[in-house]
Design a binder for these strands. Structure first.
Lengths: 128, 128
DNA sequence: AATCGATATGCAAATATAAACCTATCGATA
DNA sequence: TATCGATAGGTTTATATTTGCATATCGATT
């Protein structure tokens, strides 16, 4: 056996990112936004989501606000006031977006796995 | 016919990005780097590549330097001095990386096209 | 009408990323 | 051995992105 083993080789990682944008280009809808939408669906409040994710309400709100501006329609139905202070829930379109994104992402993940394996085998320096 | 046509709807774009990184995380090998590598192969000089791309030599050099640090081996063979000042050409491993990246990217592009089409059809608000 | 907790935003501060600047080094050729 | 053009890289400037601060609004309930 040689001096170096598998674990000794430098590990190179493949990464990819997926997002939606408007044609004008400001703001994007990426994993963070989808994550927030998903949690809104579970918790019914943006504040609760922000706490859960340990991010500021301002930040969470910004993601959703950006997303709705990009798409041009509401993903969430908001209400204010009352004993509970208010709440946020997904609109029908918000749910549709989440579902569509999930299958989109899944498809990319599959491609990623396959392509990465092939890529590494092509790259590996298997000369004697 | 209604008030709005296809062209009137807000256009939402899907985007993706692909890159390599080291486990330690500083620097990345993305499209820019691959583009530079490809041009080095054609032109035989990093300076010529920088001019072609209208970027600074410093920037082009930085991309290659980062990439070689991430991978832990040379992608280019450099020489200095002489009437021509010097030159850069791809190493065998550099060429292998380029090829591997091309098929990787192609595969992602295919997935992208298919998935995007499906995504849009799911998202489109085709209620009456 | 006073309260309370979540929604709603402008704006400033802090980071991170990228671009530009400048100076040094190398070495085949003349 | 003087030159010239490309490689090499530290340092600074500019720009973009992100994070956080502070304050206002809303309205069912009490």
């Amino acid at each position: 056996m040689g001096k170096r083993g598998k674990a000794d080789r430098r590990t190179v990682l493949l990464n990819y990112k997926l997002w939606l944008s408007s044609i004008t280009g400001n703001g994007k809808i990426g994993d963070d936004t989808y994550n927030i939408l998903n949690l809104i669906d579970q918790k019914g409040s943006l504040k609760a989501v922000a706490d859960e994710l340990k991010i500021s309400y301002r930040k969470a709100w910004g993601h959703i606000d950006d997303a709705e501006k990009i798409l041009g329609y509401d993903l969430t139905e908001k209400s204010r006031g009352g004993k509970e202070g208010g709440q946020s829930k997904l609109t029908l379109q918000g749910k549709k977006l989440l579902e569509a994104y999930n299958s989109l992402h899944k498809r990319f993940d599959e491609t990623f796995e396959e392509a990465y394996t092939e890529f590494k085998s092509k790259i590996s320096n298997n000369s004697k």
